[in-house]
Design a protein around this nucleic acid. Structure first.
Lengths: 246, 246
DNA sequence: CAGTGGTCTAGACCACACG
DNA sequence: GTGTGGTCTAGACCACTGA
């Protein structure tokens, strides 16, 4: 069908109509069931696969569907939401425990490295200081929902420390050990698009939207103990904060 | 060039190489200058226009470039960042004033409407209660950077109120008037992809990532005075919060 | 009007999961 | 192998801007 395009002149907002059709389809499909394949859906909706996929992104971003390469697209069962105020710093693990949600540790990676210029500046240590980088994926309801990276001087955490009863959470470990004394954390809040690497870790698509926190954790003496950046899948977390009126 | 694809077998991460080439190009281009056209860039990089555009999304999301239909793609001049803690509720206008950044009111829309079921639930008013919806676009450095919508019962704000010295900010207006007394706001933090409508208002692309706040503003008696949802362009805002160690 | 980015199409191949 | 989603291509038309 070459040229003669004009496919949408009869509709004011054809893309929105497509989205609404898909929304209906998803709503009518029992949770856990597989949707028709993409070529089939595209044919049925009368659009190209590229356009269909563009429309599907919306629903994936809301956590309503999950696409798995080589398997299919599935309607997600209604999930628990991890809800938390930001006033108090807590590990995801303790948050989840509080609401009775079971979370498991996905891949855990620990790397020793030497502080480069940026890292040195952030942690207020000399360049070349030995650091430990702990990255982990958190799973809930059998899918990755968060990707957390901690970066801290070996002074505060060593590979050996992790041999014994490490649950995945650096904060929980430091708190349990009691030293160094932790006081507070300065957390920045961002929205980002997933890079290829992070998309892979969280089993989502490159470009999908993520909530991101970066945090410096301070000890009593105002020392930076830990720098972390965390990525959260929308739909699984609800963070809130109470703001005073100035 | 039909078939015989294998365009990327010689490269481990061809897409990342493309991104890195683009990053170099953007870095070397003086702020404010226009980049080559998309077809030209695609040819030069040896990829299709679709692939090029996919890679460009990254940089637009970081606020490094700005694409303007009918005009071209421009490297963005280094911009001020509106930085703020979330502990205290302030209007964007007062935030900007504090850091000496000039912001202007873009399009302002005010609508009277009657509370539907959802709105009634959120505001704790009976269905059908007359409401006022105030939506506005905030501009900084000559481009839209935030889209804010306030929804509140006419009991608290009427069309007439807006005739006289309304600067755009509902909060500032209520504070200045002093009634009802405002105490705090419960704000939820989300990351979302821009819908077509919001993309249009903010002059970005559908699907671009945005930081979103939803907030209920409470009076002294625990009454919901205002419900707002706000969309922020990444790169122009830096919100942070200090978290106590539990 | 010409030229730009915005969108869509049709088709191909790749990467992956599962039998 | 077979079939799924993931990615890319080449080309077309649309919507918009500004001369």
């Amino acid at each position: 069908m070459p040229s003669l395009n004009a496919p949408h002149t009869s509709e004011r907002h054809p893309f929105q109509r497509l989205q609404s059709q898909l929304a209906d389809l998803i709503a009518l499909t029992p949770a856990g069931d597989r949707l028709p394949t993409e070529p089939e859906l595209a044919r049925r909706m009368g659009v190209s696969r590229a356009t269909l996929r563009e429309a599907m992104r919306t629903f994936e971003g809301q956590g309503l569907i999950r696409r798995r390469q080589g398997v299919g697209t599935f309607v997600v069962s209604h999930n628990h939401v991890i809800e938390s105020g930001l006033e108090v710093l807590q590990s995801i693990e303790s948050l989840a425990a509080k609401i009775g949600l079971e979370v498991t540790l996905g891949t855990l990676q620990v790397m020793r490295l030497s502080a480069n210029q940026d890292q040195a500046a952030i942690l207020s240590v000399p360049e070349g200081t030995p650091l430990l980088e702990v990255s982990r994926v958190i799973q809930a309801e059998d899918r990755p929902v968060a990707y957390l990276i901690d970066l801290l001087p070996e002074e505060f955490l060593t590979l050996d420390d992790l041999q014994d009863g490490f649950t995945g959470s650096v904060i929980d470990f430091l708190l349990r050990r009691g030293s160094p004394p932790l006081v507070n954390s300065l957390t920045e809040i961002h929205a980002v698009a997933a890079s290829s690497e992070i998309a892979r870790a969280l089993e989502i698509q490159r470009g999908d939207v993520l909530l991101m926190f970066t945090a410096r954790l301070f000890s009593g003496e105002g020392q930076v103990v830990d720098y972390s950046y965390s990525y959260f899948l929308p739909g699984y977390f609800r963070f809130h904060v109470v703001r005073r009126v100035g």
